[in-house]
């Protein structure tokens, strides 16, 4: 186990440095890119903090939709591959027209909303609104 501060805390320190020390000293494209860098570092911090719970919730919802509730693989890489495979299965069923209308469409849409909201919770800076 590593010593404190943990990874998200370190990343937030980098974000703060970029935002408060670096950005104000720069102009033009460099200023813009320093802002992008601060934003990216914050994305990584949020991803580390939320990945476990987001993956678990997505895994469970996909199991419900595709009709096969199993435990996710133990290793992170295998878990990621399994999630991707389940999403590919969902996409294939959508392309077959199974989610064009009806009860299952409503369930798929509800699931996709939650999935997209989870992605946005990571990718979007919470304070300055959506952009």
């Amino acid at each position: 186990m590593n010593d404190q501060p943990d990874a998200p805390t370190l990343l937030r320190a980098v974000e703060g440095f970029l935002e408060h020390q670096v950005v104000p000293k720069l102009n033009g494209p460099a200023r813009y890119h320093a802002r992008v860098a601060a934003n990216v570092v914050a994305i990584v911090a949020r991803e580390i903090e939320t990945e476990e719970s987001h993956w678990a919730a997505e895994w469970e919802r996909l199991g419900g939709l595709l009709g096969e509730q199993t435990s996710p693989p133990d290793s992170r890489d295998a878990y990621r591959d399994a999630l991707r495979a389940r999403n590919e299965e969902l996409a294939a069923r959508i392309r077959e027209g199974k989610a064009d209308r009806g009860e299952w469409r409503r369930a798929v849409v509800a699931h996709l909303r939650e999935t997209v909201d989870a992605k946005l919770a990571v990718s979007r800076p919470p304070r300055q609104g959506r952009s």
């Binding site: 994305i43 997209v116 992605k119 946005l120 990718s123 979007r124």
Partner: peptide, 23 residues
């Protein structure tokens, strides 16, 4: 490019809007 890299994560914004428009 860092900017190009970061734009990949904005795909979710367009997806959210598509869900909104469809529903």
């Amino acid at each position: 490019s860092l900017e190009l890299a970061s734009l990949g994560r904005r795909t979710a914004e367009a997806e959210a809007e598509l869900l909104h428009l469809m529903e």
